[in-house]
Structure formats: C-alpha cells, structure tokens
Amino acid sequence: MSMTGSQTMPAGAPLLNVEHLTMRFGGLTAVNDVSFAANHREITAIIGPNGAGKTTVFNCLTGFYSPTVGQLTLNARNSTYLLERMEGYQIAQKAHVARTFQNIRLFPQMSVLENLLVAQHNKLMRASGMSFLGLLGFPGYRKAESAAVEHARYWLDRVNLTHRADADAGNLPYGEQRKLEIARAMCTDPVLLCLDEPAAGLNPTESLELNELLLFIRDEHQIGVLLIEHDMTVVMEISDHIVVLDYGRKIADGSPAFVRNDPAVIRAYLGEEEGDALPPEVVADLAEEKKSNGGGATDPA
C-alpha cells in the first residue's frame, strides 16, 4: 500500500488511503488519478479552485458515486473496509464514515434533538429489537433511548445548541444549522468525519468557533477529519495536512507551510504573472500544461 505524501506528514497512522481515484461522468473526468492518505487524529484539508473535483472525491468516499477507477481503503477499529465496494448507507453504518453537505441537509421539520436521534438510528434499532421489543415497551429500549439522548445532549453542549434542542431544525439560523449538521454527523460515532465546506456562510466569530470545534473533535475524540474548505483562515489554521486539487488532479500534498509556498498551488490560485495579457483560452491551456507538470512532480503515486 503506497503511503502517498507520508514524507511531509507528521507521525500518524493511516486511516484512509485513496489510491488512483478516478471518476468519469461520460466524457468528463471530474477526478483524475488522485491518491492521498488521511491519518488518524489529523485534520486533512482538500482545497482547490471551484470545479476542481473536491466534492466528487467526497461523494466517492461516502458512497454517493461509485468511482470509475481506484481503491479507497479505510483502516479503523481493527478492520479494513474497501469503501468503493460498499453501498452508500453501509459506509456510514459499518465503516463509520460520517459526512456533512455543502448545502446543509438537515431534517428541517424535525426537532434538533430528533435530528441527533435519527443519527443514532442503527444503535437504537438494535436496542428496540427491530421495533418489536420497543413496541411492546421493553425497558431495554427505554434505557438505550435515554443513553442516546445523553449522547445527543453532549454534542448539543459542544455546539451550544442545548437551549434550542426542542426547536425545529429548519427554524435555526444558518450558522447554527451548520453546527447542528456537524453534531449530527458526530452522533453516528464516526472514525472519519468528512466536512464539505463547513465554514461557508459563517461570520468570522462563527468560523473561529468552528475551528475550535474541529480541533476539539480531533484531539478529544481522536478521529480523522477530512475537510473541503475555501476559507483559508480555517484551512491554514487547523489543518495538519493539505491536499490541493485542480481540474481533477492532485497538484500538491503536504503541510500547510509547504502547500502555501508550492509554485503549482500559487499558479492554480493566482495564475501566471504574464498570463493576464494572454487570451483566456491560451491561459487555460497553459495552466493545464503547467498543472500536469506540477502534479507529476509532487505526486509520487
């Protein structure tokens, strides 16, 4: 198993190994031969300009797409899962990969607490004897339910939403909905938390709170966090490891300091200096060429 990018990484066991991930939609190659690793107890950020294929990587990881080529290996809790072979809901159920969405997906007409209980569905389902014992009022289920409520309360306290627990999730302000979605994902008791632009639409104070929350999740719960983000203050502040994508290819992979000074990344984000004078088509072609060169250079896989 290749340990992509491990030379720039601080010590940490590999949690997720993405190898040669390619996703094609008809003639469009959204993700092209991307390999990287995300480690236990680390925050790995995936960044890149719009349309770089970041969300596609996420959708492959969480089973919403099945990748055209590639292997996604998750090593956690003494088992190994090949995510590309699992159905979407099983990835969350068995491999314990939780995710949030770019456009928030809560259950808007259910209360905040109910949202968090739905996240503990599989655990509660077992406790209720697939509903039969629960229907008959067996005490085992009641105990499991109050444990689940306590678990939910713990996360509500973490995101400061305890006082809104009985409100409809759809009535929360935007920033609180984002936090609730993270809390809901954490209630599934994941080993890997995938966050798709969690800071989008947050004000600076809320972004700061988000940073603290993510660091708390990493340090106290000791799980891996995978993060797609445009907000560089969040990314540079908290990431242990950054993967940069552009036009579906990986162009850089390393620590924040390394990535910040990488010429390929600067080109992808800011363009060439002389590029301004050229017509846009030429600029795009040039960038493409530079990128494939740059990607080849920094991608050992």
């Binding site: 068995k94 259950f107 109910e114 389902m125 209720s128 629960g134």
Partner: peptide, 21 residues
Amino acid sequence: LPLGRAWEALREDEIACRSLG
C-alpha cells in the same frame, strides 16, 4: 421508536438519511 423517526427523516431528506447509515 427509531423506525418511526427514520420514516419521518426519510420524508425530510433521503440523502441525509443515507449519509447517517
């Protein structure tokens, strides 16, 4: 019961349900 809550959650958002296992 969890099954009933899952029904309502499915009504609200099926994709989110899948992401929760």
